[in-house]
Design a protein around this nucleic acid. Structure first.
Length: 177
DNA sequence: TAGGCCATCTGGTCCT
DNA sequence: AGGACCAGATGGCCTA
């Protein structure tokens, strides 16, 4: 199932509304349908293996000569992969909740979340460094050193630029660009 | 209808 | 050896 709360009522519930895990997830997982012909049969390109891109890693012969235990292992592996992705999505959701953004009614996509988070962190860092360098100037402590270190490492993008970029980005998201 | 985003399956590779 | 991680492929849902 793919229920999305990106906008209200997005993603219907075709069938099978129960999660295989019972764990509450921000995005409800589809029921695991098991191996399904015609779906997910392609694999990534040939990473160090022979054959064309389309053929590389494609599923071998058929399930007819596949031992039952290997099918079972695959199903277990699928389940673990689902759980892993659910944890990843939980982390994305947690991140969304701490990033201030404008379109509260519209869920941030993953790429938007990462991009905003990066610039938010940069803007916060710039703010902290600016404050600490001002207050602690001439005093002992980590402030001035931290500021110097940051300046050395961020010479190509000055701290003030992050705030500007973050606010610009928030603005562009508001306008849907 | 096209394009964006997403969940899921899958096999290869890395790590413990 | 087995699990975690990764990325390609596919199909479904939604919006413009």
């Amino acid at each position: 199932m793919k229920t999305k709360s990106r906008t209200s009522g997005r993603r219907g519930t075709p069938q099978g509304a129960e999660s295989s895990t019972g764990e509450s997830m921000p995005e409800q997982p589809r029921p695991s349908p098991g191996p399904e012909p015609g779906r997910g049969l392609r694999s990534r390109s040939a990473r160090g293996s022979a054959g064309t891109r389309a053929e590389a890693g494609r599923r071998r012969p058929g399930p007819s000569n596949r031992r039952e235990s290997s099918v079972q292992r695959r199903l277990e592996s699928n389940e673990r992969e689902r759980q892993r992705m659910h944890k990843l999505n939980n982390a994305f959701q947690a991140l969304r909740e701490v990033i201030p953004h404008v379109r509260a009614d519209k869920k941030l996509s993953k790429i938007e979340t990462l991009t905003l988070a990066k610039n938010y962190i940069k803007s916060l860092t710039a703010t902290i460094l600016t404050m600490s360098s001002g207050r602690l100037a001439g005093l002992e402590g980590p402030g001035p050193k931290l500021y110097q270190h940051y300046q050395q490492g961020a010479s190509e993008s000055p701290p003030e630029g992050h705030l500007q970029r973050y606010s610009t980005q928030i603005h562009s998201f508001r306008e849907g660009t």
